[in-house]
Amino acid sequence: MRQIYYYSMLLLCPLMTLAQEVKLKVSPYVNATTSIKEGLIEAGPELNWEKVADGKTFTLRPSIRLPLTNEAENVLQIDRFTSTWKSVLAAQFTKDNTQESGGISRHSFTGQFEYGHAKFTYYPGGDQSFSISNGKNSYAFEIKYAGFFSKGQSGAAQFSPQFRLRYARDWQAASEVSVLNTPSPGGFTTVSDLIVDPPSVRPVFSPAFSLQIYPGKGNFSYSPTIYYDFTGNSSDNGPFGSLNRLRLESWIFFYPSVTDSPNVKIGISPFLSLRTKGTDSFNKAEYGGMITLKFGTSFLQFL
């Protein structure tokens, strides 16, 4: 019963996720881009090559991704001294088969590589006079496909199937624990919050599929989505040895203005997460709800 109350509150007080993207053309083939999404800022050039007659576009995006805040100090952390940066290289190829008359058909393929280096400091045994610092390399690979199909008529339905494969091996710092300090001469004992365990890494492989549907009229679109996450054992390279979870979502997006600014959308979805292999700190079945507010995204963009 407590679980039902907890997730009822989650539905009433959901997490708001903001996303904003800005693009500025600096030459016929180069754009300067900046995006803010899920607490991260990503900036870099975007290089475009187009063959309009063939409906082909190739885009290359090298960029740097940084966290907007420091979790411990809650301050902006976008200078060159941050230790949690990531470099990202993404390449996208789009083939538009749309003709002057008839239906609309478009296919887009994206490959992305991410690399980052972070320094982790911890205090074995809780001794503040002795610390160990290690630098660790994190990386990820991602492949995406997005299609778009419509009859090309006024009021015709629009469909956008989207598929993603992602592999990530990201090092994470251990959680802080409370450690008793040596008593003062007056007999007073204080407590410090320290990280006493070394960082850890668990590889994750995550396929995902979403079908974006716009009925052609009105201010709503619909997006059933499936994720399946494979998580490996600590320090392994393979992701298939430990934990599997299936996640089901069913998004409904509202567009305040479909004609003037369709890239602003508000979404709500229930979710169901099922553990199909292994153990973790969550229940075998978890459920709840989410709300998201997105800016600067394509009309039916999701994954």
Rank of each mutant, 00 (worst) to 15 (best):
G44H: 00
P45S: 03
P45L: 03
L47D: 03
E50P: 02
V52Q: 14
A53P: 00
A53C: 07
D54H: 06
D54Y: 04
D54G: 03
K56M: 13
K56I: 12
T57K: 08
T57M: 06
F58R: 05
T59G: 02
L60Y: 11
P62D: 01
I64V: 14
R65Y: 02
R65H: 06
L66T: 07
L68M: 14
T69W: 08
N70D: 14
E71V: 13
A72R: 12
A72I: 10
E73L: 10
E73I: 04
V75K: 14
L76D: 09
I78R: 07
F81L: 09
F81V: 05
F81K: 09
T82I: 12
T82N: 14
T82H: 07
S83Y: 07
T84N: 05
W85Y: 11
K86V: 02
K86F: 10
S87E: 04
L89Q: 04
A90T: 05
A91R: 02
A91D: 00
F93L: 09
F93W: 11
D96M: 09
D96F: 08
Q99E: 10
Q99Y: 09
E100S: 14
S101R: 11
G102A: 12
I104R: 13
S105T: 08
R106N: 07
S108V: 09
S108W: 01
F109I: 13
F109G: 02
Q112G: 03
F113L: 15
E114P: 00
E114W: 06
H117T: 12
A118S: 15
T121R: 15
Y122M: 09
Y122K: 09
Y123D: 07
Y123T: 12
G126Y: 10
D127G: 03
Q128F: 00
S129A: 15
F130V: 14
F130Y: 14
I132D: 07
I132Q: 12
I132E: 11
S133K: 12
S133E: 13
G135E: 13
Y139A: 06
Y139T: 04
Y139V: 00
A140L: 09
E142Q: 13
E142T: 11
I143Y: 01
I143Q: 00
K144L: 15
K144V: 05
K144Q: 15
G147V: 01
F148N: 01
F148A: 01
